[in-house]
Design a protein around this nucleic acid. Structure first.
Lengths: 193, 193, 193, 193
DNA sequence: GATGAATGAGACTTCATTCAT
DNA sequence: GATGAATGAAGTCTCATTCAT
C-alpha cells in the first residue's frame, strides 16, 4: 500500500504508460511524455497526471529492477562466504545495469524524482557498504576502497561496456570481464592464488 | 597564398568562438552554435562558417588536449621501462579526461566530425595498443586484456569519477585511485610485490 | 466519439488558418507557416499541428475548388451532347485555374501532400479522360490527343493567361479565348462549320 | 562594343561565371550567386561585380539563345511563304524554350535586368507581330488573335511541356504536338485541308 | 479524471548582400 | 579589381508544458 488505490481505469492507464516507456528505453529511445502518450493511445494530460516529469516515469520504469537488486542485496548479506557474497552482489548489479539502460541513469543520478527510488538506492548502497566492509575487515579488500566508491565503479563499468558495444550477449561477457578485472584490483590477493 | 591560413580577422573570430566554447564546456553547458555566437558577439553565420556542426566545434575544443595526449603517447613509447610506460600513459589519459569534459565525449564517440580528430584518436589508440602489447608480451599483463578494452576502460574510469564528484583536486585523486585499482587487476603480479 | 470531428475551438482555429492562407494566396504571397501563424494570431505549433507542411495547407485551401470542379466533371459526364460536355468541363477547369492561383500549383504538381487531393485529382482526370475518349470516338477530336495531354494543356493555358495579365475580368476573357483556340485545334472540324 | 572592354582576367572570370551558371540552369538548379562563385572558384564579390543580381546573370546566360531566336525572326521575315514563315518561327521559339529553361523565365518576365534583354525581347516581339499581322492580313489567321497573345501562348506551351515531362526528346515531340494543335486553332482553315 | 489542442520559446540552418583586406 | 569573411534576418521545425473542454 505504497499509494492511494487507483481507480481501475486509472490503474490500467498507469500500466500502459509504464509498459510503453519500458519498450522505449529498451530501444534506446529517450522518454518524451508526448511521445509516450501517443504510443500509449492516451492524452498527454493523462501521462502528466501520473508522472509529473520524465524522470519520475523513468524511475518508475526502473523500480522493478531496483527492487530485484535490493532483494539480491538482502540475500547476499545472508551469505557466509564473504568474498562470494560481495562478488555475487556486484555481479548482479553490473549485469542488471548492462541489460537495462534505465539503471545507469537512475543509479548515477544525484537526485531522485520519487521517494521510492531514494529508498531503493539507499537499500542497495547499504547492502553494498556492508558487504564491502565485511570483506575489508576480513582482509580480502584493500583498505583504500571505501563505500562511496561502489556506485561510481559500477556505473563506470556499465559505461565502459556501452562504449565497447556489441550484442547483448557480448555486453554481458564484457561486463563480467571488466568486473573481474576490477575485483582483481580490489582484492589484496588474487582469488585464484 | 590560398592556403588554410585564415585572414587575420577571421582567425580572431575563430579564436573567440573556440574560447567561448571552451568556457561553456568547462561549465558543463552543452554547445549550441546559436548560443556560442551570441556569447562571442558574432553573427550565427560566422560561427557556422567556421564550424558546420556543434560536434565540429566540440572536437576543435578538444583537439589541443588530444594533441598533448598523443605527444605523451609518443614519449611513452620511447620509455624502456615497459610497465612505467603503460601506467604513465594511462595516467595521463585519465587525468586529462577527468579535467576536460570534452575528452570523454570525443574519445567515446564512434564517429568524428573532423579528420584531425580521427587521426589523433588513431594515434592515441595505436600508442595504447603498442604499450599494452609490449606489457602483455613482457608477461606483466593478463592475456585476456585486449587493445579494444583500453578506450572503454579509460572512459569508464572518467565516468566513475564524474559520478563520484568532488572538487577538481578530489577528482584527480579519485581518478588515480580508480586507475590504480584497475591496473592491479590488469597486472599478473602486484607492482609492489 | 473519437472521430475526425475537431473540437469546437480547434475547428475555429483550423478555419482561421485556412482563411488566412486563402487571403495570402489570393494576394500572390507564398505560404509560410510561420507567417500564417502570425497573421492568424496563433502559435506556430498550432499551425503545424493542423498542417504538417506548407503543401498540405495549400492543398487544403485548394480543396473546395477541386471539389467543385469534380462535381462539374460528374455533371458533364451526364450530358448527352458529347462536344458540349467536354468543352463545358474544360471551360470550368480553365476558369477555375485562372481565378484561383492554388489550382495551377496543385494540379500541376506530381506529388500530393493529402490523400484527398490525390483522390480529387484522380476524379478530375478520369472525368476528363472519359469525356475526351467519348469525343474522340465520336470523331470530333483528332486521334493524336490523348488523356495525358489534358492536364498539361489546361495548366499551359492558365500559365499563358498569367503571363498575359490584366484584371480578373480580362483574365477570364483571355482564358476563354485561349481555350477556344485550343479546342479549334483539337477538333477535326471547326464547330461553326 | 556593347560594353567597355574588360581586362583580360576579368573577361576570363566573366566567362567562367556564365559557363557555370549555364551548367546550373541546365541541371535545373536555381542560380545563387554564392553557389556560382564557389563552383567557379571565384570570390562572391567578383560575381557581384559582374552581375548585380541573379536575374542579370540569368539574362546573360539566356542572351545567346535570345540572339539566335532574334536571328531566326529576321530570316523568317524574309520568307515569302507567309504561313511557313510564322510556323517556322514559332516552332523555333517553342523548341528553344523547351530545350533551355532560362528562356521561359526571361521571356515570361515583365521586367528585365539588362537593357540587352529588353532589346532582344522587343526584337522577337516585333518579328512575331509582323509575321502574325501578315498572316492575318493574308486571311490565314483568325482575326481575334493579336500580337500580345504570342508570348503568352508560347510560354503556355513551354509550361504544358514541362508539366507533361519526359526525356528531352519526348519534350521536343510534345512541344511540336502542342504547337501544331494551337496552330490548328489559330488558322482559319486546317493546313492539310 | 481524461483529453488533446494550444502554446511559444528556441534550436537549427540558409542565403543574399556588404565590406574590410 | 578580386577576395571571401561576416552578417543577421528569416525560415523551418520540435517539444515540454498548460489548460479549456
Amino acid at each position: 500500500m505504497t499509494t492511494t488505490q487507483l481507480r481501475k481505469d486509472a490503474a490500467r492507464n498507469w500500466d500502459r504508460i509504464v509498459a510503453v516507456a519500458r519498450d522505449l528505453v529498451d530501444q534506446g529511445i529517450a522518454l518524451q511524455l508526448n511521445d509516450v502518450a501517443r504510443r500509449a493511445g492516451l492524452g498527454v494530460g493523462t501521462v502528466y497526471r501520473h508522472f509529473a516529469t520524465p524522470e519520475a516515469l523513468l524511475e518508475t520504469v526502473a523500480t522493478p529492477c531496483l527492487e530485484t537488486l535490493a532483494e539480491h542485496g538482502r540475500h547476499a548479506l545472508a551469505d557466509t562466504d564473504i568474498r562470494r557474497a560481495l562478488e555475487g552482489f556486484l555481479s548482479h548489479v553490473v549485469e542488471a545495469q548492462v541489460a537495462d539502460p534505465t539503471l545507469a541513469v537512475v543509479v548515477g543520478s544525484a537526485t531522485d524524482a520519487l521517494p521510492r527510488t531514494t529508498e531503493l538506492k539507499r537499500s542497495l548502497s547499504s547492502a553494498g557498504t556492508e558487504l564491502l566492509d565485511r570483506a575489508r575487515e576480513a582482509g580480502s579488500i584493500r583498505p583504500e576502497v571505501v563505500a562511496g566508491d561502489l556506485v561510481p565503479l559500477m556505473c563506470g563499468i556499465a559505461h565502459a561496456v556501452n562504449i565497447h558495444g556489441g550484442t547483448p550477449a557480448d555486453r554481458t561477457d564484457t561486463a563480467h570481464r571488466y568486473l573481474s578485472m576490477l575485483l582483481e584490483g580490489l582484492h589484496t590477493t588474487p582469488p585464484s592464488a
